[in-house]
Design a protein around this nucleic acid. Structure first.
Lengths: 118, 118
DNA sequence: CAGGATCCTGTCCGATACTG
DNA sequence: CAGTATCGGACAGGATCCTG
């Protein structure tokens, strides 16, 4: 086996949590999940409109990653013009709970820090 | 930190959860937290030894970020030679629960995927 | 409408060398 | 021992143009 990269690094990137974390951390990833959850299934253009400043490339990239991780579902209608609708999968919903836990934590800490610094 | 990025991005990086997520996603971040939790407070050198392949610079960088976020505590003894010990703060412990939740999810999905693909 | 291809850019990471 | 300083390279992300 040719092994040019360092074995140690594979160790920690192979960790399922780490890859999930790495997926979530993308600049717009949580936004996408948030939009799909709060506004229900949406089409590509709607998502893009809801995220001012994102490029097609990055949005597509993120959507593919989320799809690959089984967090969202891609529904492709080969009409003319084509219509693609994205929605959350059960896994996406499961993930929601953890994300909200993280969010609560972050917000609480943030609030605490405000009080301390004031 | 220099602030040359576009205003639109500040919108989503200003979200407390996003910054926390961004912090956690660093290449070695979860490792550090994991080590400090499973092996208790450790010194700089011990941490480094436990993470083969990491450079001083990156380790210091990550430690400073974690310290700045209030997740770890830095105890500096100005002896000769100096001794610096890092430990988890209460916040670090709190974060642990969420991380484990995420980890459980990731592992379960991973296991499920294995069954499906087999 | 929903992306693919391409180029360019900054950022961040790791290696090496040096210091109080 | 516990860092800092500096440099180069890889890669991620953005802008733009183009297509089924």
């Amino acid at each position: 086996m040719t092994r040019t990269t360092k074995p140690q690094n594979e160790n920690h990137t192979a960790c399922p949590m780490d890859s999930l974390l790495k997926l979530l951390m993308g600049p717009w990833t949580t936004y996408i999940l948030w939009l799909l959850r709060s506004q229900g299934p949406q089409r590509y253009g709607e998502l893009k409109a809801g995220m001012p400043g994102i490029s097609s490339k990055v949005l597509t990239e993120r959507l593919r990653m989320l799809e690959g991780a089984g967090l969202i579902h891609r529904d492709y209608k080969p009409t003319v013009p084509p219509a693609v609708t994205y929605s959350l999968t059960p896994r996406g919903a499961e993930l929601k709970d953890v994300l909200e836990g993280l969010n609560d934590l972050a917000q609480r800490w943030h609030a605490e820090d405000m009080r301390v610094e004031a």
